[in-house]
Amino acid sequence: MLRKFAIAAAALSAAVVGVAFAAGEAEHPHDYPYSFDSPVGGYDMGQVQRGFQVYQQVCASCHGMDHLAYRHLGERGGPFAVYRVTNHETGEPELHVGQPAHGGTFVEVTDNPYVRAIAEAVIITDADPNSGQPADRPGRISDRFRSPFPNEIAARASNGGAYPVDLSVITLARHGGADYIRSLLAGYDGQTEGVLHHNPYFPGGWIAMPPPLVEGAVPYADGTATTVEQYATDVAAFLQWAGDPHMEQRKKTGLVVLAFLIVLAGLLYLAYKQVWRGESH
């Protein structure tokens, strides 16, 4: 009987690791108070813009976002949407990034200088219009976000066999959404094992992605602290916007629709009572 349960185990070497994390178990992400958490909360567009900067300068070297085009950045509800407002002192029209508190007319994305600049700063490999051969050209606003690798095989080959996933809908594709992304990016504890890095928020605890964010690596123009945590917070907000760009519109419409339905329900209730008055039931 004893033998049945007995295992003569070989000596344990110090190399046995990951004991604290049974496969699939991960620490619960921190609940960060994002502006979009509440049912009426929209995006903090300054934060989304900074997050885009972090994506562009850090994440984009390995991760694509195939479902996004540069024009999305400047469409209504996008972080670089531009509105034309009149300067009260000079009376001259000027451009304002983001919807002003009152007034302002939306500038179509084709006329948006910020989005154009962002797109043109990117080099896209395309067929040359004359020769048909692959050639580099500056990006256009209609281009999809530049893919860092031509295909999955190339991506794996450049990343030690691991595939940097597309980030278009990453906050929707992970439990915990933006909070998970934020906790993961700021959650590295410095342990490594071969090509794997330890991160308590990653299911299984070991992730192939090296810590991507370094303090001060992305300069912020608006004076926001350039810490790893701040970068993680901002880029998670950008990814949240990228996955759900119509959220603000949806929540606003929802408010009107629900208000309408509640009034309608009230009226229908009164009508129902009126119809059934005098009918026992």
Partner: peptide
């Protein structure tokens, strides 16, 4: 109008629940 009105009223409540999910 008896059943129709009652159905419409109940359906409007159902639509509110529907809307809460769709929008939020």
């Amino acid at each position: 109008p008896h059943a129709t009105m009652k159905d419409l009223f109940a359906t409007s409540l159902f639509l509110i629940l529907f809307g809460v999910f769709v929008f939020y």
